[in-house]
Design a protein around this nucleic acid. Structure first.
Length: 271
DNA sequence: GCCACCGGTGGC
DNA sequence: GCCACCGGTGGC
């Protein structure tokens, strides 16, 4: 088979490739089709398709799909879009999703009330938020998160996370990868203190003695040095709000979760 | 069932 | 008339 080249496309975010395929037969033989590939390999065959996917992450107004270059001043086929936009807005229509502010479009994975309404008088509205927490979880489910990387909408992989030195995992997969997933998940799923697996038995036979309400992490003691040097102790985008004296509790932020820690205390108060 | 590939056409 | 876009499908 003919080796066809996918070339880098500097006008798009890193990792995006462009491909031009010459038609070999038919009435349109000799013409070509242009395709783009996202870093994960998803194929795009038109500018609208590309724009839908990238949303506001990349402004494609000047992007020429066929050449793969930005053509400033041309404003491309923008007339069409602007006209459509102003028309629909003037009519009181909904804002164009392509130009609206970015919104979370994934389904929420977090616990939400489920409402069931029927004519049966015995049925109730379920609002038990505890239900999600109490549901059985697979032992060592954190392993399934292994290898996952966060990325933005352009599929650019965000900065990888770093674990504080000295943290150790518990269970069949002691890798930092799984350990980090376990801790990050624990921080998000509960505001309860994180102590790690305090039971020695859990370390010897986690399949039996694991404390399911704690991440797959051995107990851990915070040191002065780690507090003085936030770089060693942060998780990904976690950072100190401001420099703090070693003896004072300092804030670390992980998503919306704020925890306090103090030198000498266990991991329970960390992050 | 997927997808590489060409056809058809609406908008310019 | 051109061509960007996307439908449809043959071949796998």
């Amino acid at each position: 088979m003919m080796e066809r080249k996918k070339t880098d496309c500097p006008a798009l975010p890193p990792g995006w490739k462009k491909e031009e395929v010459i038609r070999k037969s038919g009435l349109s033989a000799g013409k070509s089709d242009v395709y783009y590939y996202s870093p994960t390999g998803k194929k795009f065959r038109s500018k609208p398709q590309l724009a839908r996917y990238l949303g506001n992450a990349v402004d494609l107004a000047c992007f020429d799909f066929r050449t793969g270059k930005m053509m400033p001043g041309k404003l491309q086929k923008n007339k069409q879009r602007l006209r459509h936009e102003t028309l629909s807005l003037a009519k009181g229509g909904k804002p164009d999703l392509n130009t609206a502010l970015p919104i979370r479009q994934t389904a929420s994975i977090f616990k939400q009330p489920v409402t069931k309404v029927t004519s049966h008088p015995g049925n109730k509205v379920k609002t038990d938020l505890q239900r999600a927490v109490e549901q059985p979880r697979q032992l060592f489910w954190e392993k399934r998160l292994k290898g996952l990387r966060s990325s933005d909408v352009t599929e650019q992989v965000l900065r990888t996370m770093e674990l504080p030195k000295g943290l150790q995992g518990v269970g069949p997969d002691p890798s930092d990868d799984t350990l980090l997933s376990a801790i990050a998940s624990a921080l998000h799923m509960s505001s309860a203190p994180i102590t790690g697996q305090t039971s020695v038995a859990a370390e010897k036979n986690p399949a039996i003695w694991l404390n399911m309400s704690q991440p797959l992490c051995k107990t851990f003691t915070v040191t002065d040095e780690q507090i003085r040097n936030p770089l060693q102790i942060r998780l990904c985008s976690v950072k100190a709000d401001q420099p703090t004296p070693p003896q004072e509790a300092s804030h670390f932020v992980f998503g919306k979760t704020k925890r306090l820690h103090r030198a000498g205390e266990r991991f329970s108060k960390l992050c």
